[in-house]
Design a binder for these strands. Structure first.
Length: 857
DNA sequence: GCAAGGTC
């Protein structure tokens, strides 16, 4: 038996650090080996993986799509290859002389598989060392110590269940993806993918679009009246009653249910005439009830994404921010299904810590004043991670940018809400009769006790007040309205709703659902937000429905879950389950192979339809959006190379075809998508023609070539729609300076001393231009100044914030703070003196400095 | 270059 150290392996670095701290009593130190943290204390080492560090794949000889028939992938061998070489190498090096190995990956199925992957890597270099497995539900002192005192064995059956999923997903996904791509002649980066999770998700979106298109609206009418109490003078109002209130006409349908919609126009008019001519109504019933309104359950990933969505964050963006908040130590792990706080969480202690928060401290204190503090519970309790909640480490306001603050505050307030009292409402329902015939009703609600709403402004707590009316009272009719409406088609899924639906269907995981949606965007299957399916998406779903129904059905996951359960319980094996699945896929391919050309043609036509903007002005062909070999987008004719007609597009963003058609050229307008810098380009032919017509405006001499030639600088408009200050000798001289895309350019009499160029200003620039708001003088005029000085300033702004941010993950604000404190950022990052540095810079935690320092080498 | 699942 070797005398080497004991090696602890966790699923991620963050967990490794916290476990090392707990087991060592904070005495562990971190060494960096090949960019991997190894925590060390006594005779122990602790290393964090990065999820799966190996991946299943086909052998090299199967990698050429043209040489291998997709059907051959079904029975091809599968191998596991390292994907994080540095971690694998470091792990093996440590394992070689380890006296004992303890696997401490997450306590869930995927964690068991990741643990088994580590197990196999260890065994490759060390055949005999004992390997144990520990399981704990939260990384707290008590749970971790108890787990390490009671080591167990790896559950190989559970890991095999995970492996079955890997194999089935790879085989089905790769074989069908290659088949569809090849049949449509798509060999480049625009391949056509399908998979067990993306398939049904895409079908959800396509099915909804089909419902919307098939929807046949029906007319209906609704009637409303405005009322006051007859025995009170008009306009008397106390604090919680309104003098005037609204009621709606209703009747009882044949089945006895209450209905408001009238489907016959003549009936609606008859009722309306009566309401209009009536002057009073008699109160028939008054019902009062008190309702409690329970605070929300703790946040799991889906509910967090949904709440963030309601304050304007797309799913991916919300998760990116949550990831940042988690690595900075401000919130717990953001990928969780759990909606029950663990016993180890002491709400009182955490709320007390939150009382120090600048934006929510007083709300936290109010919650502490409650008589009881019992958190709500959701209906899912898992063993891997707690629900998302803030930690007791609070960020200083300057440490987070506005978006991060907003999301952080949402998480804090949601936590406070889950430990707050319920709200109570008084509901008041009044029914009155008009002309002894027609019923009208009014529903009011009044907040008796705001409860959790006091700390959670994201929930709806709108009151709708109606007067305190009594049974038998007479009401005065002031006004009546008839509203003609139409039934509406079902709404498209928003990203949050899509993720919620995926969860309820059991497809995808807490960590993967938002990525799947992103993938559908990247594959050209959906566009805009809320997502709409492209023609290609419809064609893929149609093809799958006909020949490979399982790959767009949630049944595939349901069956797989059943099979995995059986493997985990030892009733089935990895081998039996995967071979049954392979045989089903073989049958699918038998059907597919009989239909070759059909599917490919359909996919091709749909792909072309997604790119077409209208007729080519020079031939019978269609203009489509295309991409040059260099990667830039342009408009070209689909008859190329017979027709070489092209139009340029702006260089920023990806083109998106709008439904609006230019009535001069019959071409659809184009929007360039570039996140927050997206803008509408319009009809590309109109843009090109406008540029052709506009003469260059000379403003000075060219600094690059004027010494040896006679180049002049001019304001130019390009056919792509962009504008610049450039040399008149272009293309012989390529000197140019950028100008904003929109707003009228005004040349002033102010000449720059250094460059002898006039200052420019932009008039009537609208909100969508790319200008930097801080340089804006007023709402209407943007003083650009000398174009050379302006460009120089713009460039230095770019490098200041972006290099530090991209290289070291330091935000622009923090970089500035470091500079203000007299710390040279680069050398600070290389220095090991985190504590001393943190003292000098207010608001930068030692943890974060350590993190940055680890990126500096 | 394919999937889905981890994580950064």
């Amino acid at each position: 038996m070797s005398q080497g150290p004991e090696l602890i392996i966790t699923e991620k670095d963050n967990a490794a650090r916290r476990i090392a701290d707990i087991l060592s009593g904070d005495s562990a130190t971190a060494d960096r080996e090949q960019g991997v943290n190894v925590y060390k204390w006594g005779g122990k080492r602790c290393i964090g993986l990065s999820g799966h560090v190996v991946a299943v794949d086909f052998p090299q000889e199967y990698s050429d799509w043209r040489d291998v028939e997709p059907v051959e992938l079904i029975d091809a061998p599968i191998e596991k290859n390292p994907t994080k070489q540095n971690i694998v190498t470091t792990l093996k090096k440590l394992a070689r002389r380890a006296r004992r190995v303890i696997i401490a990956t997450d306590y869930d199925r995927e964690g068991e598989l990741i643990g088994k992957e580590a197990y196999e890597l260890v065994r490759r270099v060390n055949e005999s060392t004992p390997i144990d497995r520990v399981r704990f539900s939260s990384i707290t002192e008590e749970s971790v110590t108890t787990a390490f005192e009671n080591p167990d064995d790896l559950d190989f059956n559970l890991a095999a269940a995970g492996e079955a999923r890997q194999v089935i997903d790879l085989v089905w996904g790769a074989a069908l993806t290659r088949y569809l791509s090849l049949s449509a002649g798509q060999l480049g980066s625009d391949f056509i993918s399908v998979g067990r999770v993306q398939g049904p998700t895409l079908k959800l979106i396509v099915d909804r679009e089909r419902e919307i298109e098939a929807f046949d609206p029906e007319d209906y009418w609704e009637l409303f009246v405005d009322l006051t109490q007859a025995d009170k003078p008009i306009e008397v109002s106390t604090d919680d009653t309104a003098a005037e209130f609204e009621a709606q006409y209703f009747y009882h349908a044949d089945d006895g249910t209450e209905a408001e919609r009238i489907t016959e126009e003549s009936t609606a008019k008859t009722v309306f005439e009566t309401l209009e001519s009536a002057s009073i109504a008699h109160v028939d019933s008054v019902k009062r009830r008190t309702r409690t309104d329970e605070p929300p359950a703790p946040f799991n990933t889906t509910q967090f994404i949904s709440a963030a969505g309601s304050i304007g964050y797309a799913a991916q963006r919300a998760m990116d921010i949550a990831e940042d908040l988690y690595t900075a130590g401000y919130i717990t792990y953001p990928r969780t299904d759990n909606t029950v706080y663990p016993d180890e969480l002491d709400p009182r202690e955490l709320i007390e810590a939150l009382t120090n928060g600048s934006r929510f401290g007083s709300d936290a204190r109010d919650v502490l004043d409650q008589e009881t503090l019992s958190p709500t519970t959701g209906d899912e309790e898992t063993t891997d991670h707690p629900p998302i909640h803030p930690t007791d480490e609070l960020p200083k306001p300057s440490e987070l940018d506005d978006d991060k603050w907003e999301v952080y505050e949402l998480i804090v307030r949601h936590f406070l809400a889950t430990v707050s009292n319920p709200a109570t409402w008084e509901h008041l329902r009044i029914v009155a009769i008009v002309d002894d015939t027609y019923s009208i009703k009014s529903n009011g609600r009044r907040l008796l006790n705001p409860g959790y709403h006091a700390v959670y402004p994201y929930s709806n707590a709108t009151e709708s007040l109606i007067p305190d009316i009594e049974d038998g009272e007479t009401l005065r009719l002031i006004d009546s309205r008839i509203e003609a409406k139409q039934t509406q088609p079902p709404r498209r899924y928003g990203q949050s709703r899509l993720i919620e639906t995926m969860e309820s269907m059991g497809i995808g995981t807490k960590s993967s659902r938002h990525n799947v949606i992103q993938k559908l965007y990247n594959r050209g299957y959906i566009e805009s937000d809320p997502p709409r399916p492209t023609q290609l998406a419809r064609a893929v779903v149609e093809a799958a429905e006909e020949f490979a129904e399982l790959i767009v059905s949630e049944e595939m996951t349901a069956q797989l879950e059943t099979d995995m359960q059986a493997i985990a319980e030892g009733e089935e094996t990895l081998e039996s389950v995967t071979s049954a699945s392979r045989s089903i896929l073989t049958d699918v391919f038998k059907k597919l192979m009989n239909t070759d050309a059909e599917i490919g043609d359909h996919l091709q036509r749909s792909m072309k339809a997604d790119k077409t903007i209208g007729p080519c002005p020079q031939c019978e062909g269609d203009l489509i959006t295309r991409k040059s070999q260099a990667g830039s987008h342009f408009i070209g004719c689909d008859s190329y190379p017979d027709c070489e007609y092209t139009l340029p597009l702006p260089s920023t963003g990806k083109p998106h075809i709008l439904e609006t058609v230019c009535d001069v050229h019959n071409l659809q307008q184009i929007k360039m998508l570039a996140g927050k810098r997206s803008f509408v380009h319009g009809c590309p032919l109109c843009e090109a023609e406008a540029a052709d017509e506009q003469a260059d405006r000379v403003i000075g001499t060219c600094p690059e070539c004027n010494a040896h030639a006679d180049g002049e600088l001019a304001i130019k408009r390009l056919r792509s729609g962009s504008r610049l200050v450039g040399c008149t000798r272009y293309p012989d001289c390529e000197y140019s300076l950028p100008l904003p895309r929109q707003g009228e350019i005004d040349v002033t009499d102010n000449i720059c001393d250094e460059h002898a160029l006039p200052a420019l200003q932009i008039l009537e620039a609208d909100e969508n231009t790319t200008k930097d708001k801080t340089t804006k003088e007023s709402d209407d005029i943007w003083e650009l100044g000398c174009p050379i000085c302006n460009y120089r300033e713009y460039q230095s702004d770019q490098t200041d914030s972006s290099t530090l941010e991209s290289v070291h993950g330091i935000g622009a604000k923090t970089a500035e703070k470091l500079k203000d404190a007299g710390v040279d950022t680069v050398s600070a990052l290389k220095s090991a003196e985190a504590n001393t540095l943190a003292d000098r810079v207010d608001g930068v935690s030692v943890d974060r400095l350590r993190k940055w320092q680890s990126t500096a080498d």
